[in-house]
C-alpha cells in the first residue's frame, strides 16, 4: 500500500530481534556480592566474587556496563571455532554451518559491551563478520535459484537476524510467484511443487523424500 501509517508493527525490527536474543543465557564472573534476583523472567544469583553464574544476556551487559563482572564468551566465539566455521562455510556452496540462532545479535552485544572479555577480540569480530557475509551471499544465491513454483521454502539453518533480513523480500517475492503461478495451466505444476530447500545443511533429511 502506498500510504502507510508507520511503523508497521507486524514486522520485526532489528532491535526487536536483538531484544529476543537478550534473553539467551550467558556465563558471567561477578566481582561483587549481590543477593539473588527474583525477576519476572526467572531467578538468578546469588552473586559472589569469582564464582561464575548464568544470567540472561541483558543482565550480563547491565552488570558489565557498571563494571560489576566479566562476561565469558560462549564456546563458539573463539578464533579456532570460528575459523573452522568460516572455512566450512566457504567450502560449501549451499550448506550453512550450525551456529546459535542468535549468533549475530550475541556477537554484536558482546563486541559493543564486553570487548575486553573476548580473547583475540579483533580476530573474532572480523571472523564473525566474514561468516555473516559469506552466509548472506549464500542466502542470496539460493534465493536467486528459486524456480518460482514452490509452495513452501525451507530455510533450516538460517539465524534469527538472517531470517529477518531476507523476510520482507522473500515473503513478497514468494507471494508474487504464487499469484503468477496460479495463472498457468495446472498440468506441469505437479513435479515441482515440493518444498524447495534454501539450504541443504543436513544430509539425508527427509524433506524431499517420497518422490
Amino acid at each position: 500500500m502506498a500510504v502507510q501509517s508507520e511503523p508497521d508493527y507486524s514486522l520485526f525490527t532489528a532491535q526487536e530481534i536483538e531484544f529476543v536474543a537478550e534473553d539467551e543465557l550467558i556465563e558471567i564472573v561477578p566481582n561483587m556480592r549481590m543477593d539473588p534476583l527474583n525477576l519476572i523472567c526467572g531467578d538468578f544469583g546469588p552473586f559472589l566474587p569469582q564464582i561464575a553464574a548464568q544470567v540472561p544476556l541483558w543482565l550480563a551487559v547491565a552488570l558489565k556496563k557498571r563494571g560489576k563482572c566479566t562476561i565469558r564468551p560462549p564456546e563458539w566465539m573463539s578464533v579456532e571455532k570460528l575459523t573452522h566455521v568460516l572455512e566450512a562455510e566457504r567450502d560449501s556452496e549451499r550448506e550453512f554451518q550450525s551456529l546459535p540462532f542468535h549468533y549475530v545479535e550475541i556477537s554484536r552485544l558482546l563486541f559493543d559491551h564486553a570487548r575486553d572479555d573476548i580473547p583475540d577480540g579483533y580476530m573474532v569480530r572480523s571472523l564473525t563478520e566474514d561468516i555473516r557475509d559469506v552466509r548472506f551471499h549464500k542466502v542470496q544465491s539460493s534465493l536467486e535459484s528459486f524456480d518460482g513454483r514452490t509452495s513452501a521454502v525451507q530455510i533450516k539453518s538460517l539465524s534469527a537476524m538472517e531470517v529477518n533480513i531476507v523476510r520482507p523480500f522473500v515473503a513478497r517475492a514468494l507471494q508474487s510467484f504464487q499469484k503468477l503461478d496460479s495463472l498457468l495451466p495446472d498440468t506441469d505444476s505437479m513435479p515441482n511443487n515440493q518444498p524447495q530447500q534454501a539450504d541443504k545443511a543436513a544430509k539425508g533429511r527427509r524433506v524431499l523424500r517420497g518422490r
Binding site: T13, E18, N164, I165, R167, P168, F169, S176
Partner: peptide, 15 residues
Amino acid sequence: LYEAAQSSVAAFKKW
C-alpha cells in the same frame, strides 16, 4: 521488492 530488500539490509546495517 527492490526496496523491501534494500531497506531491510539498511535497517540491519544501521542496527
